[in-house]
Design a binder for these strands. Structure first.
Length: 573
RNA sequence: GCGCUCGUAGCUCAACGGACUAGAGCAUCUGAUUACGGAUCAGAAGGUUGGGGGUUCGAAUCCCUCCGAGCGCACCA
């Protein structure tokens, strides 16, 4: 389907072109009319003509082909009201062709989507949840649009920490370590290693030597490193399955994967004349970045000791995504504190000529999850909150909520529903807030069946499906005509037709909360419709079938929209 | 100190440079409805969009400045 705003814009364009070639009508959804074009105001300013007069002239010459009526309002707005017949027939046609909830990109991209990025031998905590959930939703939406998405789970599997982690592995024995890691007690493992590193000088010394052995490619050291990586990956995978995200083991391409490209990064930066030695380290000083003292701030590509840091692997990964994978969109779903680092990486890559025209690299930054005290969410005892613990609690709470309801579930159904609802609630709460903002985590609110929540939307969907169960059919009769005679029908139909517009905005801003807002609006509009327009007791057969189309289209939109957020909507709950 | 982000109703959040009434949800209050799954509906109350300037026909949105919060600022990643 084509979105209505684009369609109206195309109809208005000739009239705008006649005034000034290439002028943009700027058609938008308006709260007081179906759509509003305010392009005449900007155009009038540019041409120095009275806006109202210009708007009148455009309105007089425009041909809307009977699809809408136009009216000049205020200082020069062009208010567009769609014809009821047009809304009804568009909805019916799109519904019949199964094209109501379809979106098509005009140009397709190959997108490198970097998200999740947990650290090997370290627990996943709430901070990883946001990146994982947002990234997963964006992956789904991009694919839905027809873009090719190459997911890179840039796990932290390299660096000086691994000296101490491998030594600790040796100390406690691989069998013990493997069982400790596989039950998900990564924090205990990491903390024990850290503890020894800080208080046991002999251990610290062994650790430092071990780093050298690791970076030198010593086979036995690499084998032990691999044990840590593999055990952690298995653990991550379990968390991803619980979280119901599409990340797969083959998406894991960690920092270590770029080791063989790091020398070339340094050489090429040197050839480009960007490399500067400073205090023994090899640095690039991109323009516009300064430190505390106001001096130029370096991106340290190679450390004084000759080792590479994460700047080098980030640069190598960026090149790999452009040069080897052939991506023209690079999205990094990474926390807001990394903003400066990523900007510097992008700046250096551009200066080095590694980012051709038409290639866009973006930091999709996100804020923190806060506790009731408005500080970073922690467990009750003040420790970092393990992601699994949070997810399991969500499932437990959903189970209790289900038990409190007046409905009977089989034990398997109860288990499955609790997982679907609980995890969905957490994900929706996360996705429905603008991603740059910190948000306050609140169990009560996110699991509530009232308000802007995952369970509310899932329930809205299940309730509509139940209409058809009661009817004993799967859907409306084929070829049913749609009428929007009642204002509630009209509003709902129009809202349903705006699916692609909403998805377009979601992608344009890489902001899943826009899709959330749309779906919540759909659910609310539906309730108003359902309250005022009897469906099963409709006055006549034709009205009933028309309303059934609206019901089914709403349920489909909710189900699809939620699935694009990574949330499953069960048919009954 | 410099930089980035945020500051909107009691609380949690929306709002793409567009309006004459800045929207939802929760909580509060008033009515209606014994309901096609009550996640009901109608309505009320609640805001000088942190303060102050500026640009504009028009600013929560853009610019400047101040205040407050969070984060980053050379060899951890």
């Amino acid at each position: 389907m084509t979105d209505l705003a684009s369609l109206l814009s195309a109809l208005l364009r000739p009239a705008f072109d006649a005034v000034e070639p290439g002028a943009d009508p700027v058609v938008r959804v308006s709260d007081r009319v179906d759509y509003q074009a305010n392009g005449a105001l900007a155009l009038a300013k540019r041409l120095g003509r009275p806006p109202r007069e210009l708007a009148d002239a455009i309105a007089a010459t425009v041909d809307l082909e009977g699809l809408a009526t136009i009216e000049v309002a205020g200082p020069g707005f062009l208010n567009l009201t769609l014809a009821d017949d047009f809304i009804a027939s568009s909805l019916a046609a799109n519904y019949a062709d199964d094209r109501l909830n379809v979106a098509e990109a005009t140009e397709r991209h190959r997108v490198a989507l970097d998200y999740s990025a947990p650290n090997v031998a370290k627990e996943m905590h709430v901070g990883h949840m946001r990146g994982t959930v947002i990234g997963d939703s964006l992956a789904r939406i991009l694919r839905f649009y027809g873009h090719e998405v190459i997911v890179r789970n840039h796990v932290g599997d390299w660096g000086t920490n691994f000296g101490m982690l491998i030594e600790h592995l040796i100390d406690i024995g691989e069998d013990v370590a493997a069982s400790e890691l596989s039950v998900g007690d990564l924090d205990a493992f990491y903390k024990a290693a850290r503890e020894k590193f800080e208080h046991d000088e002999a251990f610290a010394e062994r650790s430092r030597r071990r780093v050298v052995a690791l970076q030198g490619g010593d086979p036995e050291t690499l084998r032990r490193w691999r044990v840590l990586v593999d055990e952690s990956s298995r653990y991550f995978d379990r968390v991803y399955r619980l979280l119901d995200v599409g990340l797969k083991p083959e998406d894991v391409v960690g920092e270590s994967s770029y080791n063989h490209l790091l020398d070339a990064v340094v050489e090429d930066l040197d050839h480009a004349g960007l490399l500067v030695e400073s205090d023994g380290a090899l640095c690039v000083f991109p323009e516009g970045f300064t430190n505390r003292e106001g001096d130029p701030l370096p991106l340290i590509v190679r450390k004084r000791d000759g080792g590479y840091g994460y700047s080098a692997s980030d640069l190598a990964a960026l090149r790999d995504r452009i040069e080897t994978l052939g991506c023209d969109r690079l999205y990094y779903v990474v926390g807001a504190p990394q903003t400066q680092h990523l900007e510097m990486v992008f700046a250096v890559a551009r200066a080095a000529g590694w980012v051709p025209d038409g290639v866009d690299a973006k930091h999709v930054a996100f804020g923190n999850v806060l506790g009731p005290d408005h500080k970073i969410l922690r467990s009750r005892d003040g420790e970092t909150l393990k992601l699994v613990d949070l997810l399991l609690e969500a499932v437990e709470r959903a189970k209790m909520a289900l038990d409190a309801r007046d409905a009977a579930y089989g034990p398997d159904e109860r288990e499955l529903l609790a997982e679907t609802i609980g995890i969905g609630a957490v994900k929706y709460a996360d996705l429905s807030t603008e991603r740059m903002r910190d948000y306050v985590f609140d169990w009560e609110r996110m699991l509530s069946l009232e308000g802007d929540t995952g369970p509310y939307l899932a329930y809205a969907h299940a309730r509509i499906r139940s209409i058809f169960r009661r009817l004993g059919r799967d859907g409306p009769l084929p070829g049913a005509r749609v009428s929007v005679a009642d204002p509630h029908e009209r509003t709902l139909a129009l809202e349903l037709l705006r699916f692609e517009e909403s998805l377009g905005a979601t992608l344009e801003w890489l902001a899943p909360h826009r899709l959330c807002g749309y779906l919540f609006g759909i659910a609310q509009t539906f309730t108003a419709f359902y309250e005022n327009c009897p469906v099963l007791r409709a006055p006549d057969e034709a009205t009933r079938e028309s309303r059934l189309v609206l019901c089914d289209a709403t349920a489909n939109t909710l189900e699809l929209g939620l699935s694009l957020l990574g949330i499953h909507a069960p048919d009954r709950m």
